[in-house]
Design a binder for these strands. Sequence first.
DNA 1: ATATACTCTACTATAATAATAGAGATTATA
DNA 2: TATAATCTCTATTATTATAGTAGAGTATAT
Lengths: 148, 148
Amino acid sequence: MKITYKGDYALKTILMLSLRYGQGVVTIHELAQEADIPIKFLEQVLLDLKKGGFVESKRGINGGYYLTRTPSEITIGQVVRFIDGPIEPVPCASIDALYKGCKDIYSCVFKNIWMEVTKSISNIIDHVNFEELCKKIQIKEEAMVYQI
Amino acid sequence: MKITYKGDYALKTILMLSLRYGQGVVTIHELAQEADIPIKFLEQVLLDLKKGGFVESKRGINGGYYLTRTPSEITIGQVVRFIDGPIEPVPCASIDALYKGCKDIYSCVFKNIWMEVTKSISNIIDHVNFEELCKKIQIKEEAMVYQI
DNA sequence: ATATACTCTACTATAATAATAGAGATTATA
DNA sequence: TATAATCTCTATTATTATAGTAGAGTATAT
């Protein structure tokens, strides 16, 4: 699994929208500036996130983006899989692959390892939701206040 | 982490050489044929594996390749990291990264997740050696005999 | 009306991947 | 010592993915 810039931007965007969930819309301009993302690239990411059902938008003046679900219902895994594709190290190692066989005995031995890897990655990214991440950020920000 | 063809070929090659460890050299021709790898591509892979200290070669007639270490001393992780590069989903999530900070708070929250992912992948691939894999293959091959 | 903001398609530059090609160097042995 | 077998090394190519840029179009609050 490698996280592309696009995937990284998508995650940060969902996180920013999570932090402002229930507080109306956020413009692409604000999002781009806050996370230092090229605005035209972010446009495409947001259109994808819309297609994926993660965000919804409001056009025109006072327009912007907002989450379609509560942060607790969105996991890192959902976003990463949708934007960057399958996480398995090799295509045949997907948990719900249609076929179970391998073309040769050598491939087959490694496949089992890659399936273990896939499961262990899934186990992490499918169980971290954005509500948790928001809390972590809030704790860090509080810590910052006392540091100054 | 994504395993490239090159990585896959390297793993299969080390596995084939492990199965014949202590039995002299194996030609690139045999290796290529047995695992269905383009021979000219395999040449490059083997040169890399030589640079990495995994294999050694003997030139001329009766030449070929052989492992420089026993299969039990070689892990999947060593081969994959050497051929396909770092396994971490994002560069900053390497366990022994020089810097610990992140450019912004959003990156930082995800970094911890990616470090967990890195650790859990390492935990698998750094603890599977090629002696184990050989045993698995031998068991499978015995099973095949009775199936026929 | 108009300014603001999202939408959509096309284009481009760079790098990685997966080969392919061919000339060169070494060595056993007949 | 000639030669066939085998590894060595560098260059080239085709395809795809990635990351970003560009610009015209659509909707909407005031």
